[in-house]
């Protein structure tokens, strides 16, 4: 167990090292950092001063070490465009993104898994057929088109729900939440549905495929031959074996939600980190791009680690170290 987790941890550290090299090279190879700081028309002296200040004349390894040291102490530098510390900017916008992802994840998982199990068990009912064909449409709908459609219908046409922003926000001191006001909930409905729909259909289809796969195994056939009830076969024998791969899906799903939050936040002008990232890319605001990269990679690494540990809990074969 310990060896397994240690190995995973080592792998995670490796991933983070690679990501830090990439974001470090962003600083060095994308645009000229001095130009980005002071503009094209600064004097030669002023430039040299900044070069010295930033340590740009030091050997590359020293610069990298300093970069990693800064990251570890939470210092991502100053945004070129907004001229504020990047870590403050991210911390300020993080709650918005995490709340959006959280609500979407709940929607996607609850509906995705239950519909997936249903269509896996009742594979020939008309409801299953309907769900399956609509899921294929769901996979084919780009997130931004869903967002535009929902805005047009519910915000522009019916005027039921707001089209942008977070609505009312309550400051808890360490966290600004919109989940404590009615207005906030009204605001999060459309973006959360938009964000969850694609992942929902993905989960649904994967759970169903997995369920069908398990239903074909010999141990299900043997359970039938012992006369066990349909309920027991479906929910005791099949579902548990289905859940093993589904855990991975949940990990990937949350990663996907974070990625697609960039698009959803843009469509709904949701004041989260994704919107900030897209704007940073537009203006080649390297410190924000680099910080976002590191931050997202860290999130993914943590999620994957949790998934690995969950695997361990669910599957005795891995727990025992044999296969």
């Amino acid at each position: 167990m310990l060896a397994f987790i240690l190995r995973r941890l080592a792998q995670s550290v490796l991933v983070m090292a690679v990501v830090s090299v990439i974001s470090f090279s962003l600083f060095n190879f994308v645009g000229d950092p001095v130009n980005n700081m002071v503009g094209q028309d600064a004097t030669r002296e002023r430039r040299a001063e900044i070069r010295l200040e930033l340590g740009l004349d030091d050997p590359i390894l020293v610069q990298y070490a300093r970069f990693v040291g800064n990251i570890l102490s939470g210092d991502f530098g100053i945004s070129y465009r907004i001229k504020q510390p990047v870590d403050d900017l991210i911390l300020e916008r993080l709650p918005a993104t995490l709340e959006l992802v959280f609500v979407s994840a709940i929607i996607a998982l609850v509906f995705g898994i239950s519909l997936g199990v249903y269509t896996g068990i009742r594979r020939d009912s008309w409801i299953s057929r309907l769900v399956l064909s609509s899921s294929l449409i769901g996979v084919s709908l780009p997130t931004f088109i869903i967002g535009i459609g929902l805005i047009y219908l519910f915000a522009v046409h019916l005027r039921w729900l707001p089209s942008s922003g977070r609505g009312g926000v309550v400051d808890l001191g360490f966290w600004k939440t919109s989940l404590l006001t009615v207005d906030g909930w009204r605001s999060i409905i459309l973006p959360a549905i938009t964000l969850s729909l694609f992942q929902l259909t993905l989960i649904l289809r994967l759970v169903r495929a997995e369920m069908l796969e398990v239903m074909r195994t010999d141990y299900i056939k043997f359970a039938r031959a012992r006369g066990l009830s349909e309920r027991s076969i479906n929910f005791v024998h099949a579902l548990r074996n289905t859940l093993v791969p589904v855990v991975t899906i949940i990990g990937l799903n949350i990663g996907g939600l974070i990625a697609f939050s960039v698009i959803t936040e843009t469509v709904f002008q949701w004041p989260g980190t994704g919107l900030m990232f897209i704007q940073a890319v537009d203006f080649v605001d390297v410190p924000i791009m680099a910080a976002y990269l590191v931050f997202v990679a860290l999130l993914f690494v943590v999620i994957n680690l949790i998934v690995d540990i969950l695997y361990f809990v669910i599957d005795p074969r891995i727990r025992m170290g044999g296969s």
């Binding site: 991933v15 990663g255 996907g256 974070i258 990625a259 697609f260 960039v262 698009i263 997202v296 990679a297 993914f300 690494v301 994957n304």
Partner: peptide, 8 residues
């Protein structure tokens, strides 16, 4: 690379 979603 697979841990980071494609679109991002």
């Amino acid at each position: 690379q697979l841990t980071i979603p494609g679109i991002l």
